[in-house]
Design a protein around this nucleic acid. Structure first.
Length: 274
DNA sequence: AAACAGGCCTAAA
DNA sequence: TTTAGGCCTGTT
């Protein structure tokens, strides 16, 4: 097995919360306490103790991929300060405490878009199993540590599978939406460009052109993969939160550049009460 | 059995 | 422009 890289574990970093807050669907925690999943066509294994984070990669890979992926290059002291300064409601204090340690991952845009298309009208275990099935059937296989893993399939691979091929995996009405997304990529939709050159609003406009992509799926894609930390996905839980603590209306534009991170704290908090 | 699950589309006011 | 049904599939 490969060497393990040890990096200092900063404040506001908790793998359990990062992978259990619903932003990603391909990581599972093993009995040994190690989170394992596939991203960027590689297997990542991550664990932590009080002082360190342990990763199965080289220093070079860490600096090129995983530091950014895990949000370790972001300053959550500053982010939290900013969020706290913009709310005049005490619920954010409790939410920030409950959600402390969450970091917004910088996932791969295409995979994130597809994952949240699949998420609609669905529950998390089923989302995970559908994403796994799509990878297994149409993703590129590779070996690691004597086991076979699968990358998330490319848009071309999904087009090859076709709507029928995706329906065979029980994706239901979402199959046509995945195909629509793949067609947009084929026809010039450039997710990287949205990340590098577009505002949150411009990104919303582009992504919502895809059939089956509305405000929720688009904003999740923008937040969890395209670096738009001002994206504020409103799902059923956040809807409930707004009704319960904010009198049914919340001015998202007043929440600043990290509104989406505040959203994650609120989301995590409200679910933790259940 | 009927309702619901981290939405969105379409048709109808 | 806003609002109700319907939707694949699975679980409770």
């Amino acid at each position: 097995m490969s060497d393990i890289l040890k990096v200092n574990r900063p404040a506001h970093f908790d793998l359990d919360k990062i992978f259990d807050c619903g932003q990603s669907f391909r990581f599972e925690k093993g009995g040994d306490g190690v989170w394992e999943g596939v991203a960027f066509g590689r297997v990542l294994r991550a664990s932590q103790d009080d002082a360190y984070i342990y990763l199965n990669c080289t220093k070079d890979e860490y600096e090129k991929i995983w530091e950014n992926y895990l949000g370790l290059d972001a300053d959550y002291d500053e982010i939290d300060r900013d969020i706290a300064s913009r709310f005049d409601n005490d619920v954010i204090v409790a939410a920030m405490e409950a959600g402390d340690g969450i970091r917004i991952l910088r996932q791969q845009p295409w995979e994130t878009l597809c994952s949240f298309i699949i998420s609609q009208n669905n529950n998390i275990p089923r989302i995970k199993s559908l994403v796994a099935a799509i990878c297994r059937e149409y993703g590129e296989a590779f070996e690691y540590g004597g086991k076979t893993y699968y990358a998330f399939p490319t848009p071309e691979a999904l087009l090859g599978a076709g709507e029928e091929g995706l329906k065979a995996l029980k994706t239901g009405f979402r199959a046509a939406y995945l195909i629509s997304a793949a067609e947009h990529c084929r026809d010039g939709l450039d997710l990287q460009k949205i990340r590098d050159a577009y505002t949150y609003e411009q990104g919303m406009q582009e992504l919502c052109k895809i059939k089956g992509v509305g405000p929720k799926v688009a904003s999740c894609t923008l937040l969890f993969s395209l670096g738009k930390t001002d994206a504020f996905p409103v799902d059923v839980w956040i809807r409930k939160t707004i009704d319960k603590y904010f009198g049914g209306a919340l001015d998202v534009s007043a929440l600043g550049p990290y509104a989406g991170i505040a959203q994650q704290y609120l989301f995590y908090y409200e679910r933790s009460l259940q």
